[in-house]
Amino acid sequence: MPATLIVKTSSMGDVIQYLPAVTDLARHRPELAIDWLVEAPFAPLARLHPAVRRVIPVRLRTWRKTLLTRRTRDAIGELLKGLREADYARTLDAQGLFKSALLARAGRAPISGYGRGSAREAIATLFYDQRFDVSWDLHAVTRNRALTAAAFGYDLDGDPDYGVRAPAAAPDSWQISAPYAVLFTATARDEKLWPESHWIALGRALSARGLRCALPAGNDAERTRANRIATAVPGADIVPAMGLAELSRVIADARLAVGVDTGLSHLAAALRVPVVALYVATEPGANGVAGDATAINLGGTGQCPTPDEVLAALTPWLPA
């Protein structure tokens, strides 16, 4: 079976927003095996798509800090050797960066990518054999789908289908029988945070409507903040630390989700969980949650949605 390599390394949201393009490619070019080169922390997300044959993890963020160590040099050498030896029919650099173009060039297959005016870094286009201009005015999901359709020669059609499948069962560390809402209260930049008082008001309102609130948290700072919110919300739970694949099952089993500008909000949309994404320092525009009518964006730069506005958006999915 001929194979193709997709280079889409990061970030979490970018990786999730590429999943519908994988669905398209598998449907229109079923004769192709699809491999995906992705940053190791996000590899579990690529593995959620059944059309991905092989996930190739890289650790560019770590390697930059340890470039002179023997272990890093050996890991890079092994990766490049594997890419050179792989018999890919085509490589698609869907990232459009200098670093992703270098990774694409490590293999022997012809490379497709964005045109000079469409790539994030124009220098990346010097490494491509085929270049395609895709408008920046399109949503990121549509841009990914359009680029992939152009590179593999089929017409873009239909609504986006993320195609992911969460693990069949929730991890043993998370067992809850009551209906619940999952709240993504943490994000990488403080200016994107929704006020704790708003989370508490929303959590209490959801609790009064019969939903328990589940709050995932990553590092210690996120867990400390989530604990402050959960302590003030009746019946709220902190989701135990777990991998992205396991967390996807926790999200998939939720009645609904609310989150700030973070990759987990996109994951909820991908899993077809009704989600309201909150923006206070950025515009949702071309990068907001996308899917069907169950993916809703509120707010924008300098705007802060109120708990009442969030509840109003959630009304179709609240218990009677």
Rank of each mutant, 00 (worst) to 15 (best):
A119D: 06
A122N: 02
L193S: 09
K192D: 11
A119N: 09
R120M: 12
R204V: 09
P167H: 04
F152K: 06
E191A: 15
W194Q: 10
A150V: 05
D137S: 15
L206F: 04
Y154K: 02
A178S: 07
A124S: 15
G113S: 06
A170R: 07
E196W: 05
A186C: 02
R116F: 09
S207K: 05
A151Y: 03
R143V: 00
D190Q: 11
P179E: 07
A170F: 08
D172S: 11
R120L: 12
A168F: 03
D129W: 03
W199M: 09
H139S: 08
A166M: 08
P171R: 06
R145Y: 04
L147K: 04
F184W: 05
A166L: 07
D190P: 00
T185L: 13
A150F: 02
A170E: 13
P171F: 03
G115S: 13
W194R: 09
G113N: 05
G163Y: 12
Q130S: 13
L206T: 01
A140P: 04
H139F: 10
S135M: 10
R143Q: 14
Y162E: 01
A122W: 15
R145V: 15
V182T: 10
L147G: 12
D155N: 01
D172M: 00
E196G: 04
T148M: 06
P171K: 10
S207F: 07
G203F: 03
G113Q: 12
D161E: 15
A124V: 03
A151D: 05
R120P: 01
A146K: 14
V134D: 10
A181W: 01
G117L: 04
D129L: 02
A151W: 02
A181L: 05
L156A: 03
F152R: 09
A140Y: 11
Y128G: 13
V141Q: 11
D159M: 02
F132W: 07
Y162H: 03
F184L: 11
A122S: 14
L126C: 11
S197G: 06
A181H: 05
S118L: 11
D190S: 10
A168C: 01
W174K: 07
L147W: 02
W194G: 13
A201L: 00
S177V: 06
V141S: 12
R131A: 11
K192P: 00
H198G: 03
A146V: 10
N144K: 03
V182H: 00
H139Y: 08
R204D: 08
T187L: 01
R120V: 13
E196I: 01
H198C: 06
L202Y: 07
Y154L: 01
W199P: 15
D137N: 15
W194K: 08
S135E: 11
Y128A: 09
D155R: 08
A188S: 14
A168N: 07
S173W: 00
L193W: 06
D159F: 00
W136G: 15
G153D: 10
R145W: 13
D133T: 04
R120T: 11
A205V: 09
A140E: 13
A188C: 01
F152A: 04
S173H: 04
D159N: 08
F132T: 02
G158S: 08
G158H: 06
L183M: 14
